[in-house]
Computed example of a mutant assay.
Amino acid sequence: MTTHDVREHVIGTADALFYGRGIQAVGMDVLKAESGVSLKRLYTLFPSKEAIVLAVLERRHALWSQGLETAIEAASSPRDRLLAVYDYLADWFCIDSFRGCGFINAFGELGAVSPSVADAVRSHKRSFQASLTRLVHDIGGSSELAAQLAILAEGAQTTAAISGTPEAAGQARRAAESLIALSDAGLREALAVTS
C-alpha cells in the first residue's frame, strides 16, 4: 500500500472508532490494533492524535458535503432542493451506526481544549449555513430564515442521536415547511404593500 493508502486507511479506521466509541475513549494503542499500523508509522503519518482527529473531521466534511449536494441536486424545484436537506437527514438517521453529528460530538469532547478542533467544527457549520442560505435565497427567502432552518437541522441531528429514532428528521422537515410558508406569506404581503 502507498503512504496515501495507509493514511486513508488510518483515517477511515479512526473515524469509525471515534464516531462509535468517542474520541477520548480511543487511544493510540486501540487505533494501532484496529488499523494494523504500527505506532511508529502512525506517528510518522500524523504527528499527534489531534492531527488524526482533524483529518477525520476533514473527511467527514467532504462526505457530508458530497452527500448533501447529491440530495439537493436530485430535487426538481428550489423549494424541493431546500427540503431535500431534511430528506437527507432522514436517510442518515436510519443508518444503524448513526450516533449524531460527528462535528457536534467532537466539539462536545474537545472544543474547550483544542482550538484547532473547535475551528474545524465551526468551519463545517459555517459551510452548512452557507449552503442553506444559498438554497433559501433561491426561493426568495431571507438569511434569517436560513438560520432558523439550520437550527432545525442541527436540533434534529441531536434529537435523533439521543432518542435513537429517526422521527426528528420528519418533524424538522414539517417545521421547515411551516417556516417557509410563513416566509412566503410575509414576502407576498410585503410585495402587496409596496405595489
Rank of each mutant, 00 (worst) to 15 (best):
P78G: 10
A175M: 11
L187R: 15
A55P: 00
M28D: 02
G20E: 04
G164T: 06
A14I: 05
L182Q: 06
A176E: 01
E58S: 14
W64E: 09
T159P: 02
S38R: 14
R126C: 13
F128L: 15
I11L: 07
S195F: 09
G108Y: 12
A14K: 01
R174I: 00
C94I: 05
T44N: 12
L110M: 11
R60Y: 03
A147K: 06
D5Q: 15
V121W: 05
L89I: 03
E34Y: 03
R21Q: 13
V85N: 03
P47E: 12
G27A: 12
I52Y: 04
R174Q: 10
Q157N: 08
F103Q: 01
S127K: 08
Q171D: 00
S178K: 08
E109K: 05
F46D: 03
L17S: 06
R173Q: 12
T158W: 08
A71P: 07
G20H: 06
E50P: 02
G170H: 07
S116K: 13
I139H: 03
D29N: 14
H137W: 07
S116L: 12
G20A: 11
R99Y: 07
L39Y: 01
E177K: 02
A71Y: 05
G141D: 02
S195K: 12
S143K: 09
W92E: 13
R174T: 12
L82E: 04
Q171P: 00
D91E: 13
L152Y: 06
R81D: 00
G186S: 10
H61L: 11
R21K: 10
K125F: 14
S116P: 03
S65D: 15
G155W: 07
R134L: 10
E109L: 04
Y19V: 03
T3V: 15
R126Y: 15
A130E: 14
A55D: 09
T44V: 10
E167V: 06
H4M: 12
E144W: 00
V30W: 00
A153H: 14
T44A: 12
R41C: 05
R81W: 05
A156S: 06
H4W: 11
D91T: 08
L132I: 15
S183N: 05
D87I: 05
V6L: 08
A106K: 07
L68V: 12
L132K: 05
C94Q: 15
S142M: 08
G141L: 00
T3L: 09
I139V: 14
K32T: 07
L17V: 04
R81T: 10
G102E: 01
A150Y: 13
G22R: 13
I180K: 04
